[in-house]
Structures are given as structure tokens and as C-alpha cells.
Design a protein around this nucleic acid. Structure first.
Lengths: 346, 346
DNA sequence: CTGAAAGCGCTTACAG
DNA sequence: CTGAAAGCGCTTACAG
């Protein structure tokens, strides 16, 4: 039953040429072959339904055409999980990375990693041509990962420059500024911010800066603004809600740094009988595809997550292939999309 | 800068043994080596920080320890996307597959595929040891894919048996039966079902059967029940809502076959000023992690998606490794979780 | 332009 | 128990 595998040898024999020539034809080293030879080879390939063995090619070229997408292994309720499962942001971005990589001739290996060592090991043992790293990690993680000699692209990182790593990010500060401006323009003055733990999140430090600029620019004392730091997840958003309800009945608007947190926040506010946006206006960040469908629909800062994924592959592969023009870090645009969770202050 | 790669040769030399012996030690062919030899080898491995080159190993063993997760390439608004991005069901299941595979020593390659040929090509060229196929496809797709000689596990398939392929599924019929029973127990008699296009979805044919059983058992004429067929997505759910609003003001409860559709349905009903559950009760299917946080929280049929992913890897790898005891198709349990979208009929 | 040969880093009979 | 050698299916100088 198991048919013998068709190799280049078979193709070579069938076409009446050498294995080296088949290789040259298939690798489009056209200056090394004549058209007649190429035709013979291609027709043999079709006839025999030959498929290149990427494993052999990888071993011999030292290049796998495989890129790794690494993301943090997380635990909730003691169950191992992944950021993939927790936050649709990652599904959307991976979707873009995969599509674009495939178009460029690369396959995707995904893995959740608990340490830099795991990332390094996988990269080495699978001979990955490059890796994209999703999620936030501590400084020491990056120090280790950066010893890898393959191209790396980080996403939303703020400390890549020192190592010459490429990053695909957005203007977090400006996005937060716009969000806060929007709240301000609606007449709100008692505005809170719901954010990730700032000490651990450079991204959110940027967003907080944007928040401060807008607030300060309006002549409001930033010290009067409530800052609530919680985990970036639905549960984190729920907690933001509790803390808001508990002591701060005077807050009329909140900028919350992730749509996923906004979902949790809305849930808590609803539980406590608060109406959004009548009692409190909310603006999120990300514009996850679901945000258009919450009730009420979430006003948020939009970033084009899928396109971000596409750019990640383009840059990473650009660098892998030595195309340095394509290999600079990029900052993608943000904009606010106004839906139903923000409203003029009463 | 680029350090020379450490290979088995280096380890062998350092340990003062042959490459074959290193290989035997590392592959735990313990009956072929003495403890003393093993110790020498392991300490050389540590000393040199040797990492097995999986590419070489794959080529030589014909086994990659790589498994493929394939899912459909979809398009929305002419943009290429993936089911990953559209439906959290897939993120959750992939999360489980990845975790379990990793624990068992396998890595994961993901790819969106537009045809059976792509699946076959990837499997061949990457020498995948086995594949998990997510999503629904036409008969002809399966006919082609089943020519592959590696183990395959399908998810929620109803036509795998003829080919001896393993499947991980749930009791769709029973789940739907329970859902409908729940609605019935609340006094509803005019119950609709929102489903995928039945002709294309064996899974939903099963669910429809469960719906029919419950309805019929109650003495209600199934012909009086509204059946609305739409795509499984938020947009599909929105359309279910439109169609429900348009002509069927007498329906007081609906069973909708996917939580993701329920989200869209709730959105439409809200837009038209219908209150859930006061005006209409909704029960979904899946229990996506977000379903606990919709407003109101969604009553639904729970399946443990993450665990399903874990089982998929276990079965697939079990079969890859020839452990046939572990290799039967399994049907995982379902249960209804009552939250806030269903209510006693007024 | 084409081919013979060595090499990529492993594994696996086979001899000893 | 250990090692020399062939082989997995490619690519890549090198000769011709």
C-alpha cells in the first residue's frame, strides 16, 4: 500500500538528467539550465507527482522556511492555557501572520513558551529561519532570546532597539491621547484609566503617558484621575469595575486599555445597575472584531490587528531573505471609532 | 560571531565514544549502553550545550515529531482570514491541542488550507507525523485527504467511520435535545431553531435531530417550529435575528447552534428593542469562555473545548506511536449551563 | 549547461 | 556493549 516515496532521483531518472540539474531547475537557478531541460524536468515532476522534501532541503541548506510564533504559556485556575485562548487579539494577529507567511512561502510553527530557553531550544532544533514573539516578558527573557542568531520580530515592544530587533507596533501614546481627548470632548472631566500593571507593561506606560498629556492639556490635574491597574483579561476588566463601583461614584468616564478588559468592565457595571453610557462612558483599545457587537457597541481605539500580523511576516521574512529595505520596525496607525459606549456628559 | 553548530560528532568526541553510541544514549536505547557510557554522554551534552537537530533526525528516521493543524481558509469582505480569527471555538481547541502535543514531545505546525491538495502537500513536504483537521469540508475533500498515510484526527465529523479515521466529537444530538428540553421545561411551546445550513453541516443535522426529538416528545408538531439556517458566525446570528424579528413575533424561545451566533442574535434583538429573556429566551451551544460575560450571560450547552483539544493530541499521538488502545474515536459529554438568557414563559 | 561527489546531522542494521 | 559505514533526500561547489 505505502507507495515508495518519489525523490529527486526518480525525477532525474525519468527526465534523463542528473539530480543536480533537477535541483537547479526546481530552485529556479535558470541561468544554469536550458529551457529544454527545464521542460523535461517539470514534466517529470508532474508526471511523477513529485513533492520536494523540505526536511532534506532544510538539512542541506540550513534553512527551513519555517517560522516560529511564540507566545506565553499562561495558567488560569491552575489550568495551562495560552494567550491564544484568552485574548482574541492574538488569534487575529496570528491569522494575519500565517496568511502572509504562507503567501511568501513559509510555514508556521506555533508554541507556547514558559521561558527563553524553550524558545531558543525550539528555534535551534527545528532550524527556524526566524521567530515572532507575542506577549510581554521580563527583561531577562529578552536578554537570552536575543542571543539567537535568527531574525526576530517583536510585537508592541518598547525595548527592542538596543538589540537591533525589528518591532511591529502602534503609536500607543497617541492612541491613548486620542481616546482621552474623545472623552474630554464629550465634557467629561472626572476620567479614570483602567490599565495593566504599569510597572510590568511598557506598552501601557506609553498609553498612560498619552492619557496624561490629554488630561493635562485640558488643565485637569492628573492627580485627580483615578488609575486602576489590573490584568489584561476579562477578569481584569471585571475587577476594574469593582474598584470603580466601590469608591468612585464620581467618575463619569473611563479609558480602559484593552477591549477585552472593557468587556469585563461592562459586565460589572451592568451587574451593579450602572448604565453605559448614561452613567459612565467607556472607551477601549484594540477594536477586536467583537467590539462592534457588544451591547452597547464599544467605542474604542482601533488598530488593524490582522494587518499587523501581515506586516510582521513581511518584515520577518524580509529580514530572513536579507532584504534590508523591508526590515525596519514599523509603527502602525491608530484611530478612534466612536460607537455607543461614550456619550456627552450630563 | 556565529558559533559553529554543536553536533553529535562533537559530543561523541568530547565523551570519547562514537556517534552511534551518542545516538543510542540520547534515544534511550538503554539496553545498548552501560550506565557509565550514558553518564559520559550526558555530561558531554550538558558541557557542550548540545541540542538535537530535529531536521537531521527527521530525515533519517522518517518521523518528524511534528503534527499539523489544518483549518479552512475563509474569506470575509474579500479579505483572507481564518476560522481562527472568526470563531473563538478554534482558538480554544488549538490551545488544548498545542499544550497536550507539547507535553507529549510533539511540535505544532498550523496552516489554513483551501483544498485537500494543500493539506496533502504540506503533510508530505514537512513529513508530518499526523494531522488534525478542523472545520467542515465537502465529501470530495475527505476522499482526497484520506489517501494520506499518516494518522488523521477529525473533529466533530460524522463521516469518518467509513475510513477508519479517528474523530473527537460530542453528542451533538443529545446536546440539542437537552437544550430544547430546557426551553420546553420553561413552558415555551413556540420554539425556533437557528442553525447552520443543514445540507452542508452533518453536525447540525444531528443537532436538528435532537431538537426534533425533544419537540416531538412534547407533543408539539415539528412543522410548527421555525427553522432559520444561517452561517455560523456573528453575522449569521445577526441574520437569524432579522429573520426572527421580521415575521415571527410569536416565537418565545430559540435554540441557536453556536454561541458565536447567539452573540449576533442578541445584538439584533437588542437593536429592535426586544428584551432577552423577557421577550425571548435564547440557549446557545459551545459555552465559549466569553459566554459567561455577555449581557445577559448566555445560557448554553457546554462542551469542554480545551479538553477536547487535549484529547485530540492524545489520540493522534497515540495512533502515531502505534498505541492502538488509545486510538478510538471519542465522544465527549455535554451539559446545559443555565445562565440569564432563558426564562419561564410569561 | 550538466553531472559526480561530498556534505548537511542524524539513525540503523551489522560486525565485532 | 561499541563503532564503522551506509543511508535519509536534498544542495553546492567543482570539473568538464
Amino acid at each position: 500500500m505505502a507507495m515508495a516515496k518519489i525523490t529527486m532521483r526518480d525525477v532525474a531518472k525519468y527526465a534523463g538528467v542528473s539530480v543536480a540539474t533537477v535541483s537547479n531547475v526546481l530552485n529556479h537557478n535558470d541561468h544554469k539550465t536550458t529551457e529544454a531541460t527545464r521542460n523535461k524536468v517539470f514534466s517529470a515532476v508532474n508526471k511523477l507527482n513529485y513533492k520536494m522534501d523540505m526536511t532534506a532541503r532544510t538539512l542541506s541548506k540550513g534553512k527551513s522556511n519555517l517560522i516560529g510564533i511564540f507566545m506565553p504559556q499562561v495558567y488560569e485556575n491552575n489550568m495551562p492555557g495560552t494567550i491564544l485562548k484568552e485574548n482574541p487579539y492574538y488569534s487575529e494577529i496570528i491569522s494575519g501572520i500565517e496568511y502572509s507567511a504562507r503567501m511568501l512561502g513559509y510555514d508556521i510553527l506555533i508554541a507556547c513558551i514558559g521561558s527563553a530557553e524553550q524558545a531558543i531550544e525550539l528555534t535551534d532544533k527545528r532550524m527556524l529561519d526566524g521567530i515572532a514573539i507575542l506577549g510581554g516578558y521580563e527583561e531577562v527573557f529578552w536578554d537570552k532570546v536575543y542571543t539567537l542568531e535568527v531574525p526576530i520580530v517583536t510585537i508592541d515592544s518598547y525595548n527592542h532597539e538596543r538589540k537591533g530587533v525589528i518591532n511591529v507596533g502602534i503609536d500607543d501614546e497617541f492612541g491613548a491621547y486620542l481616546a482621552t481627548k474623545h472623552l474630554l470632548s464629550l465634557g467629561h472631566t472626572n476620567i479614570a484609566i483602567g490599565t495593566a500593571i504599569l510597572d510590568y507593561s511598557p506598552v501601557n506606560q506609553q498609553r498612560y503617558k498619552g492619557f496624561i498629556s490629554a488630561i493635562t492639556q485640558e488643565g485637569i490635574d492628573i492627580k485627580d484621575c483615578l488609575v486602576i491597574e489590573e490584568e489584561v483579561s476579562i477578569k481584569g476588566g471585571i475587577n476594574v469595575g469593582y474598584r470603580l463601583i466601590k469608591d468612585h461614584k464620581d467618575v463619569t468616564a473611563i479609558f480602559i486599555v484593552a477591549d477585552i478588559m472593557a468587556y469585563g468592565l461592562m459586565k460589572t457595571l451592568h451587574q451593579f445597575g450602572k448604565n453605559v453610557p448614561d452613567d459612565i462612558s467607556i472607551i477601549g483599545f484594540d477594536d477586536l472584531s467583537f467590539s462592534n457587537y457588544t451591547i452597547p457597541a464599544l467605542t474604542t481605539v482601533r488598530q488593524d490587528i490582522y494587518t499587523k500580523g501581515i506586516e510582521i511576516s513581511k518584515l520577518l521574512i524580509g529580514r530572513i531573505e536579507g532584504n534590508m529595505e523591508l526590515s525596519d520596525s514599523i509603527v502602525m496607525p491608530v484611530s478612534v471609532v466612536i460607537r455607543e459606549t461614550t456619550k456627552q456628559k450630563k
